[in-house]
């Protein structure tokens, strides 16, 4: 079954009428992921955009059709670890899934997630990374790119020019837990995303982790009809490469032999408006360095000729 067949034939597990921003690609991502996961899923959505827009069922007007709960910002993985073992004790099998933003994953939720990963709790943990705390008006997270304006990394005449640090490479950090499956994904590459969710579901033991990069229209200053184009540019500029790893065997799933300049991506995003050429060059250099590191891992994993590539 192709990804298109899957999406065309499966039931949408999210009701109509949720209140995401116009053009939000996280809504698309969530609907896609849940179509693949199917009805036998227990879903945790911690505080963040998707909790706020009604997927957790505000006033019973809208929400997920699968059992969904709203854990706290810092403990989704721990609550799911308990759910998994509770279900196991009852002899029940289900996809036990977190769909969490970057704040609940890479910042406050990291201790719980790392604990679950190391223990090998059988959870599918999906992070939708929009580079910050959008629900409270866009504050920086440790996933926010270098140079970004956010309300806590302001841009001012006094010389502060957005966030000084670059985003941590969180999917690689998760891969270094030696997990059975780790992948990165993008709403601009839906067939790739569908395949990755299916692979996460095939995991028999241990935690599967998928990190999805979701440029945020409202927070980043992107036009609402530019959502997918900019998501695609993030991949085509190698700014956010798409790969998957079984243990430490990492391979690219979308190869980008002729990347577009990072500048082409950055210049279409409002939060980077203040960056001059030197600072964009800096982002290009970081992107190149990180990509080289992944290329080396990809080569070790067998590169384009590896089985399954």
């Amino acid at each position: 079954m192709t990804a298109l067949d899957t999406l065309a034939t499966r039931e949408d597990q999210i009701s109509p009428g949720i209140s995401a921003c116009v053009g939000c690609n996280v809504e698309l991502t969530l609907r896609t992921v849940l179509k693949v996961l199917g009805p036998n899923t227990i879903l945790a959505i911690p505080p963040g955009c998707m909790g706020g827009v009604g997927v957790v069922g505000w006033d019973k007007m809208s929400g997920a059709k699968v059992p969904v709960f709203f854990p706290l910002l810092d403990n989704s993985a721990s609550m799911l670890a308990g759910i998994r073992l509770g279900l196991k004790a009852r002899g029940r099998e289900a996809n036990v899934v977190a769909f969490a933003g970057d704040g609940a994953t890479v910042d406050a939720g990291f201790q719980a997630l790392s604990g679950a990963a190391e223990r090998g709790d059988k959870i599918i943990y999906i992070c939708y990374d929009n580079e910050g705390y959008m629900n409270t008006g866009y504050q920086r997270s440790s996933s926010t790119s270098k140079g970004s304006w956010t309300s806590t990394t302001p841009v001012s005449k006094e010389g502060s020019g957005g966030k000084p640090q670059h985003r941590k490479d969180f999917p690689l950090i998760m891969a270094m837990h030696d997990l059975p499956y780790v992948a990165t994904a993008s709403p601009a590459y839906i067939p790739d995303l569908v395949k990755k969710v299916e692979r996460a579901m095939e995991v028999k033991e241990g935690l599967a982790y998928i990190h999805i990069y979701n440029p945020c229209l409202t927070g980043w200053g992107i036009k609402s009809d530019d959502s997918i184009a900019i998501s695609r540019l993030s991949v085509q500029s190698r700014f956010f490469p798409l790969w998957e790893a079984h243990g430490r065997r990492l391979q690219f799933t979308v190869r980008v032999p002729k990347p577009v300049p990072v500048a082409d991506y950055v210049r279409r995003i409002g939060k980077f408006r203040h960056l001059d050429e030197a600072r964009i060059a800096e982002l290009q250099a970081i992107t190149d360095e990180r990509y080289s590191f992944l290329e080396a891992m990809d080569r070790m994993g067998g590169g384009a000729n590896a089985p399954g590539a």
Binding site: D107, Q139, S156
Partner: peptide, 29 residues
């Protein structure tokens, strides 16, 4: 760390503290 309804305090400190030689730091929680 941002949280409603206190976030403005962090945002103003991020803006104002560097101007007077102070330090603003956003933590992981």
């Amino acid at each position: 760390y941002p949280i409603t309804p206190s976030t403005e305090i962090a945002e103003i400190c991020a803006e104002e503290l560097p101007k007077v030689g102070g330090k603003f730091i956003q933590m992981e929680d």
